[in-house]
Design a binder for these strands. Sequence first.
DNA 1: ACGGATGTTCGCGC
DNA 2: CGCGCGAACATCCG
Length: 266
Amino acid sequence: MPEGPEVEHTARVLARWLRGRRVAGVVAPPTRVLRGTRVAAVRRVAGTRLAGVARVGKFLLLRFEGGAGLLVHLGMSGHFVRRRPGEARAKHVRLALRLDDGSEVCFVDPRMFGRVAAHPAEALAALPEVARHGPDALAGPLDGRILGARVGRTRRAIKVALLDPAVVAGVGNIQATEALWRAKIDPRRPGHSLTAREIGALAKALRASLRDTLATLNGDAMEYVNAGGGNPFPIYDREGEPCPRCRRPLARIVQAARTTTWCPHC
DNA sequence: ACGGATGTTCGCGC
DNA sequence: CGCGCGAACATCCG
């Protein structure tokens, strides 16, 4: 589910849920989501309050007063839900933070591609998988110059390069697909073949697409609140439908084992 | 029943 | 070294 906008939304929701509350207890069943992290290390946030939530790319950095910290990645199917007293617990809960008001903040992840790791709060940002990230397309001032330095010399297809978190952070398959369409760039073109003008347009399109998606996320659930419901994206997963710009049918190709929807005409 | 799915990392081979 | 590719992870959904 989640790319940069969804993770950003999750960070804001978590901050709201946890603000002013103390973590009374922690339940962390030993699952693959914990990978090398020991349950005892995760439990160190018990008894403390949230000091802050940050996002780097698709990672969430949770810092707690007292110096404990959690690194969370939502993977493909991870999301947070809140359980109030008396409500049934969701399925596939991989981490539950019981708060001092009796509610529970649960990390649910059926597929377990997600991750929860415990590290000292001040060490989170320096973890290799976090520090490795390129400029954040949602938070940072991404422009053509910055993006060009990242993709201007690669021989990889521009679509594939955009999916690399070390190139730009927070961009996944949907956002890369949408941004390339907005910028009218053929997703198969090698990065080095793009002109400065095109890279500038692509940077702008990335920011606009991420921002638009974030704007459709409202409330506690990670659901898109868009007119008409359904697929909120202009291009993604719309093979065969008319291009919103030129009305010719959208096509679908596979690059690096990921689906790209695009408009061959535009 | 089958195929595909919004993420990341790793190993292999060229 | 760069890069494309497939696998791995485990489950749900149409």
